[in-house]
Design a protein around this nucleic acid. Sequence first.
DNA 1: GCCTTGACTGATCGCACGATCAGCGAGAGG
DNA 2: CCTCTCGCTGATCGTGCGATCAGTCAAGGC
Lengths: 221, 221
Amino acid sequence: MAGHTAGTAKATAKEDILDAAEALFAARGFEGASMRAIAEAAGVAQALLHYHYKTKEGLFEAMFTRRSGAINRIRLARLDVMLARGRPTVEDIVEALLRPTIEAGHDPSRGGSRFASLILATSTAEGDWQKGLVARSYDSMAERFIAALMGALPGLGRAEATWGYLFVVGAALTQMAPTGRADRLSGGAARDEDTDAMLSRAVIFAAAGLKALATAPPDDH
Amino acid sequence: MAGHTAGTAKATAKEDILDAAEALFAARGFEGASMRAIAEAAGVAQALLHYHYKTKEGLFEAMFTRRSGAINRIRLARLDVMLARGRPTVEDIVEALLRPTIEAGHDPSRGGSRFASLILATSTAEGDWQKGLVARSYDSMAERFIAALMGALPGLGRAEATWGYLFVVGAALTQMAPTGRADRLSGGAARDEDTDAMLSRAVIFAAAGLKALATAPPDDH
DNA sequence: GCCTTGACTGATCGCACGATCAGCGAGAGG
DNA sequence: CCTCTCGCTGATCGTGCGATCAGTCAAGGC
């Protein structure tokens, strides 16, 4: 194991690169963030990025899965605990889905709110490798939450549960992404808040929407 | 007026460029779409893009405001009609907000669903000119709809109305953006549908969420 | 018939990009 | 003391980028 200092959780250059990549990819997009700029932000030579991650796509993928993996593990652990205890409510399920993301969004050491922008940009990119990355990172987790929603709301069919899940995620990402629009549109009444305020508002909105989808499904034409 | 053929609404090269730019900016992002690729897709020389729109940013802005302006005019016209007739319901307001976008999303001649990806990408871009473009294009319309929501839901404060508006827009954009995730996650149960099915589902979800925000606001700490 | 106007083009500029490679230097193993 | 490993670097490659510019060509006014 590489020596260079002591043992526990020292920030290595490899992690510094991922941090810098996260900030720049989120701010400027995949093509807009250059390997040169990431290297400079991380304080290393550009060639080191290629040494550790081979290509720009490799760096992006490593940066992406680091966060998504950590958050999804927490999400699924929370869901499993609730399912083991009994039948969770919609509110419980939505909170298990959103709390880990929103908490991470308020913790600069875990990427802050930048990651929300990144997911939005990545999942809407053209059909190439970025969509595959989103699918690989999120689909299995999403399927479990969709199933849990159907279990909590008997009237909710598969299609409505899927759309509902995507609605909830979209609304939450919109809330988290640091666009500054809420502050501006509300004349300062909707400033950045603590985790609990954002979470409870998102849960209230999402749970009510999901219940409505379950009791009054749209005309299935 | 430039001659070259007859009078009414002939598709000129200038419009062809905007169409090609829209498709490529949505698919690959601002930096990912090159002027060369846009020119080739439009079937014109690259220099013509600079002749008509000066810079790449100029082209992007022209392409963006063409769609957003058209859609927002329809939105506000619908809202005005409803407000003149009496006090619209939340469902009415949400429908006035979402129907023009969703209808345009199903009409390839008006940009199809690509524009949804574009808004998501643009509004989450870093603090430069792209955010200003979103603000200039959407804020005044958004303020009027937020005010209308507060009028329809007496318990809804300014901050909650603003967040609620952003939730609704985020959920709708998530539904419209052609990511293919709904189809995949639902095992094919949530395929692309007609305008009315998508709209009624979004309205049901959004209206219920907004009502819940009005009656049970999050702890304001 | 000529000249102006304006949409449009091909060639080319300098620049920044992603990627590669030979080499450096400190620490571990013998 | 030698040597091998490996994280790391500076220099450099070829490519594709946005932008520019002199020129072409048809239509319209005089």
